[in-house]
Design a binder for these strands. Structure first.
Length: 243
DNA sequence: TCATTAACTGAGG
DNA sequence: CCTCAGTTAATGA
């Protein structure tokens, strides 16, 4: 399989966390990964399933979500290339939420046994995954605060800035703009508001000259007010260069 | 299909 | 009285 392109984002991200050796990288590069393509809005792993593999986002944007009885869906987290959104399925055998694609995506699947063996062989890597999972839960705490307490414009700004900082880590920033290829329906589901209201909030941020969202791309117009509105403190992402 | 906007409504401060 | 947000519906890209 095309090892470089697929594994590059994962390795780059693990590299930024802390000590990973060249040996570790080589080992990860040699892992068998089954690559599959998905359209937008595909359910990759369902709530209640018992997966036997973990999913690496190779390309595209994915999300974890839960759907309530009324049919409304809450997006719990957004995932970008290089991340393994369902790493916890290694230890928590039954899925307690859905993993879906937000955009057409390329996903790589790594069997649980493969990862378990990797953990035993390379405690270094196991530590990185452990650390990664803790950061993941820190991000959930921030997400709860965001959806539960911030006004809608700040919610949107906060999700945007978090996404930007994570895209920065995998080298996907382009000056003052970055990708956010979600539909307004999906943005609403992430923020806990309707698509119509998401549209109003997006428009307000544009009219206020803070940030523009057009065709899946965010362009920052006023960085100072953007940060101020978002109430963003990047400590919870636990990257070395603290924002 | 997705985005945009208006009009109306009600909750809540 | 004002702001926020859901609903509905019409229209545009």
């Amino acid at each position: 399989m095309p090892s470089d392109a697929i594994r590059a984002a994962l390795v780059r991200r693990l590299h930024t966390s802390s000590g990973i050796s060249e040996e570790d990288v080589k080992d990860i590069d040699a892992l068998p990964i089954a690559v599959r393509q998905y359209p937008a809005e595909a359910i990759v792993v369902r709530d209640g399933e018992r997966p036997s593999e973990c999913c690496l986002v190779v390309d595209g944007f994915c999300a974890r979500s839960k759907t309530i009885a009324s049919g409304r869906r809450q997006i719990l987290s957004i995932h970008i290339p290089g991340e393994i959104p369902d790493l916890m399925s290694l230890f928590l055998h039954v899925m307690d939420h859905d993993l879906t694609t937000l955009t057409p995506s390329t996903l790589g699947f790594i069997r649980h046994e493969t990862l378990q063996k990797l953990h035993r062989r390379r405690p270094n890597v196991a530590e990185l995954f452990w650390r990664d999972t803790l950061i993941d839960s820190a991000m959930f705490r921030e997400w709860i605060v965001n959806v539960g307490q911030r006004p809608a414009p700040a919610r949107l700004a906060h999700v945007m800035i978090e996404l930007r900082e994570r895209l920065r880590i995998i080298g996907r920033l382009d000056g003052a703009s970055f990708e956010m290829p979600l539909t307004q329906e999906q943005i609403g589901e992430a923020l806990g508001i309707t698509a119509v209201h998401a549209n109003r909030v997006i428009r307000q941020l544009r009219e206020d000259g803070i940030v523009e969202l057009h065709r899946g791309r965010v362009t920052v117009l006023d960085e100072r007010r953007f940060l101020e509105l978002a109430d963003f403190d990047g400590r919870y992402l636990h990257q070395s260069p603290v924002l």
